[in-house]
């Protein structure tokens, strides 16, 4: 896939980092304001997709990228499941138990395990939306025989 002009490349370089940071902000404040893992993850994936679209890549690096992202996605999902099953060990010993101290309403570090879920779900969603994009490009780029 070819890249775009120098103007587009420079603009994308300038704003992609900011979009990524905004995604992180939405994820981290997920338990306080609207948003959270899914919305923030999609924003983060958007910044990655912007970079690839503007700069262009070749087919082999796309495939390599797709493999690495799959592993990140699976690992993040496993972390979510591990946090959920950790509820078996602490507190009232049930699945999905919120075993950490709750803190004060409105603080950044509060609400027990919810921010942890948000972070891992955010990574998972960013990776999976990125994988969807990559796979669709790979399907399109595969040379027809």
């Amino acid at each position: 896939m070819k890249g775009m002009t120098i103007i587009v490349k420079k603009t994308a370089q300038l704003i992609a980092g900011m979009i990524f940071m905004y995604g992180i902000y939405v994820i981290v404040h997920g338990h306080l304001t609207p948003g959270g893992g899914f919305a923030g993850g999609v924003i983060m994936a958007g910044s990655l997709i912007l970079v690839i679209l503007s700069h262009g890549t070749d087919f082999f690096s796309l495939v390599k990228e797709e493999m690495g992202t799959t592993i990140v996605e699976s690992a993040a999902t496993i972390c979510v499941i591990l946090i959920a099953t950790a509820g078996f060990l602490f507190g009232t010993k049930v699945f999905f138990n919120n075993f950490l101290p709750k803190g004060n309403v409105g603080d950044l570090v509060s609400a027990g395990v919810l921010p942890l879920y948000n972070i891992f779900v955010g990574i998972e969603v960013a990776a999976s939306v990125f994988i969807i994009f990559l796979s669709l490009i790979i399907f399109k780029e595969e040379s027809p025989k």
Partner: peptide, 19 residues
């Protein structure tokens, strides 16, 4: 206590196989 395992075990197996 074992009932959630019917969902947890295959779900985590999916992603372990992927890795």
């Amino acid at each position: 206590q074992l009932l959630p395992l019917f969902v947890i075990v295959p779900l985590s197996a999916t992603f372990l196989i992927m890795i």
